[in-house]
Design a protein around this nucleic acid. Structure first.
Lengths: 246, 246
DNA sequence: ATGGTTGAGGCTGTATACAGATTTCCGGTT
DNA sequence: AACCGGAAATCTGTATACAGCCTCAACCAT
């Protein structure tokens, strides 16, 4: 019997990924109501896993529940995306502050410094020369370690949740589709902030750590403003920005 | 035909309320796995609404999903509850800061000042004389208005979510079962912080507003420490503290 | 012309049967 | 005695039938 990977994954998982993909792609504009029966026919899956998948997407924040049952695609305005980025800054700032205040283990600090050094080596001689893909991976690692160093599962869950909206993720402007001059140049500033974060945490300077992390998130804000206001053609190249409304 | 209220509400809602009640009451210790079939038999409801209810409870943060399906009751340590309170402080602090920085409408400010005045009138001549029940209601209103004044649906959702854990709610220590001297006395300090919050927001002092709100949440932290360390008999009288572990 | 009422269509809520997967326990073997 | 294997029990995943409710539209009455 041939190995069927699609047979291994549940129908719920298929529906979840498929619906998420279509929503993020902008196939369903914000406010669109999703009906179980047509979706079940489209995806060739019964209503039960569709329901389950929509419930998960509501948990992710991509769908809203209607009072009398049913789901609609959540709509995001430009201001909403800015607020989501600011929120991430606040939460990561709190993680940084707690890491500094409560102290981190030498192993944790070493881990972070290791990623910091590897991020450094992504930059070449010219200021335009950056290994974008490697930077993107390492940046995700850096942020994951930061959240970990706070040592709070409650905070970790909230950050995971707030970060699940793709445009609010620390990697939002680091997809391979956004390898553009203006974003590449912002990485020098970002890396300097990474350095400041490690310095603040290792010196147990909580307030400095908190506000550096906040300002770090605001790089994403500036990148977003550039995309929306000055170069709207890029909108579809930033993950999740396809569902942006009005 | 007689009016059947139970016939109006769905089985999902019944299961949701019933399970939530039992979890918060501590009937299922943290880590307990909840099986669909026995629960369906116990509650005289089929598996489908039970599943749906458990999915909602996972969204609320009371249950965790297992990797291969199924749910377990989430376990909270003392440190987790402290972190949840600190998190609320951070989020409400952000709401206060944004309200101050972005400015609020005269109507919004008047609304908040109205509740502030009514909170004042809950206090009697003696420092021990407080209309506890009225204060509890108005306090909830005050916090709701604060979140509203920030004018961010993204932030509002996060605060609603973080606050859904009963012990992290601004009203956690204001249930009628916790009408105790030491909690009543903390209300004078809390009300002074309410005043400072209104002052800071109306003067557009963002930083002051943010840190007053954080400190305000830490009253709950002190109350919690009192309950746990000095008067454990009270644990079962604080909403949601029944599911606290180790 | 406007308002209310009634009916039909369609959507979600629920129960249940069956299938697939996983875990557990028991027995045998090394 | 410990470990491995297999079978049974049990749990979740899924499809589907049916019931109830909500909405919307059309028609009738005033």
């Amino acid at each position: 019997m041939a190995v069927e990977d699609t047979g291994r994954t549940t129908h719920t998982a298929v529906a979840l990924m498929e619906l998420r993909k279509r929503i993020l792609n902008g196939d369903f504009p914000g406010g669109t109501r999703l009906f179980e029966v047509p979706l079940a026919e489209t995806l060739q899956i019964s209503r039960t896993p569709i329901r389950e998948a929509m419930s998960r997407l509501a948990e992710e924040g991509l769908l809203d529940r209607l009072t009398n049952g049913g789901f609609v695609v959540r709509s995001f305005t430009f201001a909403d995306v800015l607020d989501a980025i600011e929120l991430r800054g606040v939460l990561e700032g709190t993680a940084a502050r707690l890491a500094a205040e409560r102290g981190v283990t030498p192993e944790g600090l070493a881990q972070m410094q290791g990623v910091l050094a590897r991020l450094d080596s992504c930059f070449g001689a010219s200021s335009d020369d950056v290994d974008f893909e490697a930077y993107s991976d390492l940046n995700a690692q850096f942020h994951a370690i930061l959240v970990n160093l706070a040592g709070s599962v409650v905070l970790q869950r909230e950050i995971d949740r707030a970060t699940r909206l793709p445009f609010a993720s620390p990697s939002a402007f680091l997809s391979d589709k956004t390898n553009i001059d203006i974003f590449r140049q912002s990485l020098h500033v970002a890396q300097e902030q990474h350095r400041a974060l490690v310095s603040a945490i290792s010196s147990r300077e909580g307030t400095r750590a908190e506000f550096v992390a906040r300002e770090h998130a605001r790089i994403a804000r500036r990148n977003l403003e550039y995309v929306i206001l000055e170069n709207p053609d890029l909108i579809m190249r930033v993950p999740g920005l396809g569902l942006l409304n009005s």
